[in-house]
Write a protein that binds this DNA or RNA. Structure first.
Lengths: 217, 217
DNA sequence: AACTGTTTGATAATACTTTCACAAAATTTG
DNA sequence: CAAATTTTGTGAAAGTATTATCAAACAGTT
């Protein structure tokens, strides 16, 4: 116990899925699970399950398996170590409203604290019980209100024009739905892209070239 | 010219981004680009650009570089070789409407041909100019109307109950927004997951553990 | 028409991820 | 209470993906 190797990105990406299934198991009343059972559920291998958990110190017990309860709480601590993250939404259009709703209703670890838009016609309107603010107010708001992440649901152009000010806001991450790629290596700023168009195109390619790799995503 | 090695998933995932930037270059009036210029734009390396394009036969010219026009049309052919794919939307809720809108307005390679939902209160209503159909009609519709992909924007439960019928529909792929993992190894059926919650959690982890890998997504 | 500088395509080297294999630890059984 | 069984943790091997290297190909120049 205590192999302090750093988690790689593939491991981090699997963590939420572990969390999803383990939460389900916990709600089912399952108290224990082995790496092979979990691998079966996850569609991976027992080795990978053990290797993955070992990145974080390995919370299993030899000969016994893993305690569902412990796994759940440990992974939760990994995903949300400092309580809920404070997020602001940029762009109150169709997509922005949907994502905002999603964060409010379906996300336990993130709370939405403000909404911004560039459209004067809707600035000042209420959305999710908050007054929509103008983009000019973004930097000072983030600085004063300790915002952790920006959720970018704007057009490519809006995102591009906001990009130079992002560092000033002091946020640590961007959940990016815009077609703009925030400068990929700003160090200290983590960008998680959700490029819907790219995802759909990748599907299109794979569907059209069926002999494609059998790798699971 | 003609190194027929198969494209790996990471390469396929980069294709849409190449396409995005190359479309931009084309619209800018740029006619030629070198692997190093393109790598700079993409945030990758010249080696990777050349390696990637070589998976598809390599459409550059030594000493000269790549023709933007040619690149654009070749990648387009790779992404959408058989014209537009026919898609149906499952779930006409908040998310479904947003994604449906996105496909209709922002996607060139995919067309939306029908919408389904389980809620009797909205079945029969018009959405995007189409009448919302019941889930029971899904299989026969897909069989008769040659549907290529299903866009799943339903609840986990709805997706789970539909899963056993998916094979019957004869679709080739699923663009999955539901919290349900369609059985990962159905062979012949390609699933592209857009797990918003997982993506947000991964961001949360990375933001909270800033010493995390500097790998670009 | 030869020379120079550039840039690809292909192969080799490096780095990263996943899988394998087995010793150590715990439980169960005779 | 020892032997058999289970199952983790870990280090090594195998498999992928990325980056570096370099010869061959082309354009432009004198």
């Amino acid at each position: 116990m205590s192999n302090t190797m750093k988690a790689s990105l593939p491991v981090i990406r699997r963590l939420p899925r572990y969390y999803r299934y383990i939460t389900e198991l916990k709600n089912n009343g399952t108290t224990r699970i082995s790496s092979s059972q979990l691998a079966h559920i996850m569609g991976s291998t027992p080795s990978q399950v053990r290797q993955d958990f070992n990145c974080f110190g390995g919370f299993g017990q030899q000969g016994v398996g893993y305690s569902v309860e412990l796994l759940h709480s440990e992974i939760e601590k990994l995903l949300f170590p400092e309580g809920r993250l404070r997020a602001v939404l940029l762009g109150a259009g169709n997509l922005g409203i949907t994502i905002g709703n999603f964060v409010l209703k379906e996300s336990t670890g993130v709370e939405l604290v403000a909404v911004f838009d560039s459209d004067n016609a809707i600035i000042g309107n209420k959305l999710f019980g908050m007054e929509i603010m103008a983009f000019d107010e973004l930097v000072s708001f983030c600085q004063n209100e300790h915002v952790d992440i920006i959720i970018a649901c704007t057009t490519k152009e809006a995102a591009e024009s906001l990009a130079p000010h992002i560092v000033e806001t002091g946020v640590k991450g961007i959940w990016n739905y815009s077609h703009f790629d925030f400068s990929i290596n700003d160090e200290s700023l983590i960008v998680e892209n959700v490029h819907l168009r790219d995802s759909l195109m990748a599907l299109s390619y794979r569907v059209s070239h069926k002999e494609c790799p059998h790798m699971q995503e």
